[in-house]
Structure formats: structure tokens, C-alpha cells
Amino acid sequence: MRTLLVIAKHEFKSAGKERLSIALLVVFLGMVLVSSFIGWTTHHTVMSIYNETLHETGMKLLNPFLKASPLDSIKNTVIYIVLIGALLAVITGARSSVRDRKAFVVDLVFSRPVSSWSYVFGKLLGVQAWIGLVLLVAAITSWVSIWVVTAQVLSPLNTLLLLAFFALAWFFLLPFSAAGLISGAYGRYESTALLIPILFWVVVTFVIPQLGTAAHPTALLNPVASGNTTTGMFFQVSRFVLQPISLTEHFKHTSGILLRLQDVEPLPVWQDLLSIGVISLLSLGALARVSRQAIRQGLYE
């Protein structure tokens, strides 16, 4: 346990020095701010139309923004976590394994009383701690930007829901970090070690949801889960098969509930949490099978 924590601390420090990870972090936090800006412009546009309509017609219409939760203004963050956050996790994970193999320090580490289990889980903990820090900064940024956009401080309940959303995001990103670490440990080339988890990200983020919902590709970029859009036999079957492993759709659905987004299907979240939990456990199981000999392999470039 002690060596696991030493490796985790070292990994946390190293991840923060990776140029690629820092670049993605900047993009991610930038997009979180953009999300708030989009929320603000949407709010501003709807309010303008509302006021204009009132002025022109003299009618009293219900202001649609009165129904919306203040958390609604950061709803695009959901999709940024799926797109940029998951990409950040796979790349940080892969770079974590590749860094040691490339620096030829693996033998020095394993000549110490360090088990392969401590090594890989220490790395995962370090990567996830770094991602946790990124998400914490994103949560603070979101909280402040909601305050600025809506001109009101979030209530304690909404603050808790916001934190719960980012905690869910942390769990959601765990299989991506693990996939990156596994690929980084087994890849024979640095490029393939990075590309394979990116392929995993593409399949999980785009292919599985599309086959499971028959949604248009652009609909998958909607922060609200797509649901089933067809009654065709093929998609009914593929939905039945793929829905349990449709990680991003489960994340989007529960996020929609937590952020109190409108148009979210009122389905229970336990299925989502079960799916994310099982996939996370499977990824941890796969990580536990990474052998010392695999990590000791040299890279061919």
C-alpha cells in the first residue's frame, strides 16, 4: 500500500508536467468556460425574445428560463467531459505507462519491493488524482460562472448536485484512464500505445451509442442522452445488446438528472450507475492482469 501511494504521488506530479496533458487540460477548462458563455448567450437570447414578444403582443407568456435550473447553463460541460475529458484520460493514462518504458526506469522500479499490482494501481490512482484536480477546478469554474451568468449564488442543494455531477464524471473517466494505462503497458510502439486507447474512446463515445440509439452522429453531441429514435428491428436488437455498455449515454442521462436538465427521460439512474460501476470494475480487472514482463518491454521508437 505504501509503494502504491509513492507511485501515485509521483504519477500525479509527472502528469502535471506532461505537455500533452497540460494542453488538453487548458482546452478542457477553456471549454468549461465556453459552456458557461454558451449558457449565458442562450439565456440572453431567450430573455430578449421573451421581452420582445411581451412588448409586441402585450401577452403574458411564461418565461421558459423560469422553469430551467441554474445548472442548465453549464449543460454543455456534459459533452465536453465525454469528448475532451475522456480523451484527456486515455492520453494521460497511456503517457503514464509509456513515460516509464521510454525512460527505461521500469527495471529500477521493479528491482525495489514493488509489485506489478502496486505499480499499475499506483499509476491509476495518480492519473485519477490529477483528473480529480482538473475536475475540481472545472467545478469551481462552473460554480463561479453560473453565479456570474445567472446573477445568483447557487443554493446548497444545487452546489451539491454540481459536485455530484463532477464526482460522477470522475468515475466515468476511470475506465478511460485504465484503458490508456493498459495500452501504454502493452503497446510495442509509442504511437500505437496512444492510438489504441483513442480508438477505444471513439468506439465508446460514438460507435456504441449510435448503434444503440440509431441517433444521427450530431445528436450524439447533444448533452441530453439520445434515447431510442427508431423502431427498426436491427436497432431494437442492437439497442438491447449495446445499451448496457453504452457508457457515455448512461453518463449523459445521469448527468441530465443531476443538472436538472429539461427533456431528460425520467428513467431511474440505478441502471446508469450499475453500468458505469460494472465497466469500471471490468477495467480495473483488466488493469490488474497487466504483468511485470509486459511493462518491462522496450518501446521500438
Partner: peptide, 23 residues
Amino acid sequence: PENVQFYDALTLHENLAFFARLS
């Protein structure tokens, strides 16, 4: 090991501290 390498982005002290803690 032959051709020993370390974490180049870290200082001498940081590298040694890491391996010391592992021990």
C-alpha cells in the same frame, strides 16, 4: 542496469527521493 536512465524532467533530488521512498 546497463545504460541506466531516469526521469529527465525531474531533478537529481526528486529522482533519488522517488527511489528512496520506493525502498
